[in-house]
């Protein structure tokens, strides 16, 4: 009810000028882009933001040469198992983390440059039937994997040379974990969403499962993107890939939900609905959250951007004759938005 009362009125139309085109990058070798991202890279005493593109069999690192011009620095070829996604690792440098697999993630690898051997390398971090993975601050990686009998949730501490220093097992919930998000400002707190549409909270230091809180039946298959604690409440940004359009609130792509971890009760704080469009079935496909900004690819082939705290769509990149948008990712540090097409074209926007 609270959420419904606070449901925002959609603006007359999103302001496209809030996204400013900066540059284009074209991966000519890539016939089917699967992911794009950014990584901090230090070379010759200079630390800069570089772009990483991934197609099924290769991951490429791009450096800015001149304004609007990108050059491929290196390509890691991963021919045995297809690349599924790039896993952002906050506050790392010279390190790219990727998930590989067929239908689901089978292994996680680190791609890195070794100054000792002056060569680009890759190393295996984890194998299994991996359902969800997240990179955390301080060189940590958490993943959930399933066997026929049980679910394993594990945190791996990564070393700068691409190895694993330490492993901590976290108590698994009964339901399969579908996504993780670190609780900003609380180094030892982690949240996850489950296949049963609950939000769970862990203590990363002890591995304890602290709380399981149901999200509600209105928005099934919620995926957590971001979490922070304020005034005793746990605020979680969720996306709803399976939400149905309703008359009262449209089709919610993202919601901010406040949980009271003491009681397990929750209240919707803000909806971010799909922007007005033609009256045909439109859905959220996949998205990314940075700070208070959400971006998502829609089934129409457009990318929409929202101010999640105001529940307002602030920009739309329509699909154009060159092709539908397939990927939308925020650059590290809020440096802008990357929008990618399957043909390997990536556009960078300032937001």
């Amino acid at each position: 009810d609270v959420a419904e009362q606070l449901s925002p009125v959609l603006p007359a139309g999103p302001r496209e000028e809030s996204l400013q085109f900066v540059s284009e990058l074209k991966d000519a070798w890539c016939s089917c882009a699967v992911d794009v991202g950014t990584v901090w890279w230090a070379a010759a005493g200079c630390r800069e933001l570089r772009v990483v593109t991934a197609c099924e069999s290769a991951v490429s690192l791009w450096e800015p040469l001149a304004p609007g011009c990108w050059a491929r620095v290196y390509t890691w070829h991963l021919r045995e198992i297809p690349v599924i996604q790039i896993i952002p690792l906050p506050d790392t440098c010279n390190l790219v983390c990727v998930a590989l697999g067929e239908l689901e993630i089978g292994e996680i690898r680190l791609l890195l440059y070794s100054s000792e051997t002056d060569s680009f390398e890759h190393s295996l971090v984890k194998t299994g039937n991996i359902k969800a993975v997240v990179g955390l601050k301080d060189w940590r990686l958490v993943s959930s994997s399933r066997t026929m009998q049980e679910q394993q949730v594990e945190m791996v501490s990564l070393s700068e040379t691409g190895g694993s220093k330490d492993r901590q097992t976290l108590m698994p919930p009964e339901e399969t974990v579908t996504a993780f998000a670190e609780v900003e400002g609380m180094r030892e707190a982690l949240v996850g969403t489950t296949a049963g549409n609950s939000v769970v909270v862990w203590n990363l230091k002890t591995g304890q499962l602290l709380r399981k809180m149901h999200v509600g039946y209105s928005y099934p298959a919620s995926i957590c993107h971001r979490a922070y604690s304020d005034s005793g409440l746990l605020f979680v940004v969720l996306s709803h890939p399976h939400a149905k359009e309703s008359e009262s609130c449209g089709s919610p792509a993202f919601r901010v939900v406040a949980f009271n971890p003491r009681t397990g009760r929750s209240a919707g704080v803000m909806f971010s609905c799909l922007p007005p469009g033609p009256p045909c079935p439109r859905r959220y496909l996949e998205g990314d959250v940075w700070d208070t900004a959400g971006a998502a690819v829609l089934t129409s082939g457009a990318v929409a951007v929202w101010d999640l705290l105001r529940g307002r769509c602030t920009a739309v990149l329509p699909p154009d004759p060159a092709g539908h948008w397939a990927l939308a990712r925020w650059a590290a540090g809020g440096a802008g938005l990357l929008a990618g097409r399957r043909n390997g074209t990536v556009h960078l926007y300032r937001y």
Partner: peptide
């Protein structure tokens, strides 16, 4: 969100739940 909707709120929820949860 009011306290009546969400129940009693604690600023130290993480420490309290860690002390109460099974190890």
């Amino acid at each position: 969100c009011s306290e009546s909707d969400l129940g009693p709120i604690s600023l130290n929820w993480f420490e309290e739940l860690s002390a109460e949860a099974p190890p």
